[in-house]
């Protein structure tokens, strides 16, 4: 087992997330796919931290920051989805075109 295993796994996870973000129409589903992509990034970061030439905490610390931002993002996005549902009775991302020119 070497670094490349984890790298290819994280690439696969990220690509599945890309598909989810592009293909789903429900805002909740898009958000779930986004979480997958963030996790793929974290796997990559921690794999590089574990297989690095010298022992250093940097990779894990940045992964902690990514998790923090992901938590903040989920909280905000869920608030926006709730508001959207209340105002428009829909969570279809295609129908949210108020700011589209």
């Amino acid at each position: 087992m070497s670094l490349i295993h984890f790298q290819v796994l994280s690439a696969a996870l990220f690509s599945i997330g890309v598909y989810g973000v592009l293909a789903r129409r429900s805002a909740v589903m898009v958000l779930l796919a986004l979480e997958l992509m963030l996790n793929a990034v974290n796997v990559n970061l921690i794999a590089f931290a574990a297989y690095g030439e010298q022992v250093q905490a940097t990779g894990q610390v940045i992964a902690i920051f990514v998790i923090t931002v992901a938590a903040a993002e989920v909280g905000l996005a869920m608030a926006i989805i709730l508001r959207l549902f209340r105002d428009r009775a829909s969570v279809d991302v295609d129908e949210v075109d108020l700011m589209k020119w």
């Binding site: 087992m1 070497s2 931290a49 574990a50 297989y51 030439e53 022992v55 905490a57």
Partner: peptide
């Protein structure tokens, strides 16, 4: 790919 195969714990 770097050819590292040893894992280090922090």
């Amino acid at each position: 790919a770097p050819s590292e195969t040893t894992r280090q714990s922090v």
